[in-house]
Simulated assay, not measured.
Amino acid sequence: MRLAKETDRGAVEELVQAAYQPWVAVIGARPRPMEADYAALISEGRVYVTGDDLDGLIVLIPENGVLYVDNVAVRPGLHGKGIGRSLLAFAEQEARRLGLPALRLYTNVKMARNIALYESLGYVVTGHKEREGRTVVAMRKQLP
């Protein structure tokens, strides 16, 4: 796991597009991560990547008392190999390193597979919200 560099931007953007493209038909719109400004996120030190060929990435934003997991993306051909779980385990390590006692995230209510993964890792649903005309599930994980 390492911080993304400016030279990774093209690969980061390609990975995000590939990872989220299958969800467009499911939710009826482009998921928010597909529209993010990765140049800015990389320059702010928010994007972490894993794998020699950028197998996955996670975007982490420290907030007051919590680490916000803004985006988790895994290359489509590598699903089921534990990359997403390792990215989320890294997020927990980062939260602890920063002295933050919890993590939070949002995911679209129609992304049932993602919700199930987060729940299996100890995240709990804290509510539903309308964001940009979409229903999202708010989730949180308190660290021991």
Rank of each mutant, 00 (worst) to 15 (best):
M1Y: 04
M1K: 04
R2C: 02
K5P: 00
T7W: 05
D8L: 03
A11C: 01
A11V: 04
L15P: 05
V16K: 05
Q17V: 05
Q17C: 02
A19E: 08
Y20D: 12
Q21P: 01
P22K: 04
V24C: 02
A25F: 07
V26D: 11
V26L: 15
I27T: 11
I27F: 13
R30N: 13
P33C: 05
M34A: 04
M34Y: 04
E35I: 05
A36Q: 13
A39H: 12
A39W: 02
A40P: 00
L41G: 00
I42R: 04
E44K: 04
E44C: 03
G45I: 09
V47F: 05
T50P: 01
D53K: 11
L54H: 14
G56C: 06
G56M: 09
G56A: 14
V59E: 11
I61C: 08
N64V: 13
V66N: 08
Y68V: 01
Y68R: 13
V69W: 01
V69M: 03
N71H: 03
N71I: 06
V72A: 09
A73Q: 05
A73E: 06
V74K: 15
R75L: 10
P76G: 12
K81D: 05
G82P: 08
G82T: 11
I83W: 08
I83K: 02
G84E: 05
L87I: 13
L88G: 06
A91Y: 01
E94L: 06
A95E: 04
G99T: 07
P101R: 15
L103D: 11
R104Q: 14
L105R: 11
L105V: 09
N108Q: 14
N108Y: 13
N108R: 07
M111G: 04
A112T: 12
N114K: 01
L117Q: 04
Y118P: 00
S120K: 13
Y123G: 07
Y123H: 04
V124N: 06
V125G: 04
T126H: 00
H128G: 08
K129L: 11
K129I: 14
E130P: 00
E132D: 15
E132S: 11
G133S: 10
R134M: 15
T135S: 12
A138T: 10
M139Q: 10
L143K: 01
